[in-house]
């Protein structure tokens, strides 16, 4: 048990070190630290949320990318808030993408659909953003949500509606790509 405690203490210290690296303004080191945090997985989730850097949006974007990739649903609230209201587009994009692919099955059954609907509502809200890259990321999030939740037909309807209103050629292409992906999955 002592060895186990020691091992987990080392993992914890390692997690904090990796999180600190996200704020060093060294992209190569930060990308490596994100990979390390993703490999650690679930034990890194709570520290990532608690140590989210309010002042350095670069560090915050890396932390959100790590949370998005780990996909632990404990990150739901922080991803919802970041996607909707962070001032940095890079943070919002990472959060939007992450919102689509949380491991919903880890939530108790009675919370699952509420959580998925929250993700859907936030992604639909940011589809109206003036920044094309936020809309693009919202579509990526929605496409992923359509494959991980029961909201597939609702999201397909949203995509059809979007093609009628979206003016940006790149965002339109991404909607079409998402539709094709969903069609090939739902028609299997």
């Amino acid at each position: 048990a002592a060895v186990q405690d020691l091992a987990s203490a080392e993992v914890e210290a390692g997690i904090s070190t990796l999180i600190a690296v996200l704020g060093y303004n060294n992209p190569t080191a930060a990308v490596a630290a994100v990979q390390g945090l993703i490999q650690i997985g679930s034990p890194a989730v709570q520290p990532l949320i608690e140590q989210l850097d309010d002042y350095n949006y670069g560090a915050r974007a890396y932390a959100i990318r790590a949370l998005a990739a780990i996909a632990d649903p404990r990150a739901l609230d922080i991803l919802l808030a970041s996607a909707a209201t962070d001032f940095a587009p890079s943070v919002r994009r990472a959060a939007a993408k992450g919102l689509g692919a949380l491991r919903w099955s880890e939530l108790p059954t009675n919370e699952r659909s509420t959580a998925q609907v929250k993700a859907l509502e936030t992604l639909e809200l940011i589809l109206q953003d003036a920044d094309w890259s936020i809309r693009y990321a919202a579509i990526v999030g929605l496409q992923r949500l359509a494959t991980t939740s029961e909201l597939t037909s609702q999201i397909q309807g949203k995509f059809a509606q979007l093609l009628a209103t979206e003016k940006d050629a790149a965002v339109r292409s991404r909607v079409q790509f998402a539709q094709a992906q969903l069609f090939s999955i739902t028609s299997d």
Binding site: P89, S133, Y136, A169, A170, R172, S173
Partner: peptide
């Protein structure tokens, strides 16, 4: 930075579109 790369790739995508 990723935002510059996204914008450049967007240019490629628009050209194809």
């Amino acid at each position: 930075e990723n935002s510059f790369k996204l914008l450049a790739l967007k240019g490629l995508l628009e050209h194809q579109a």
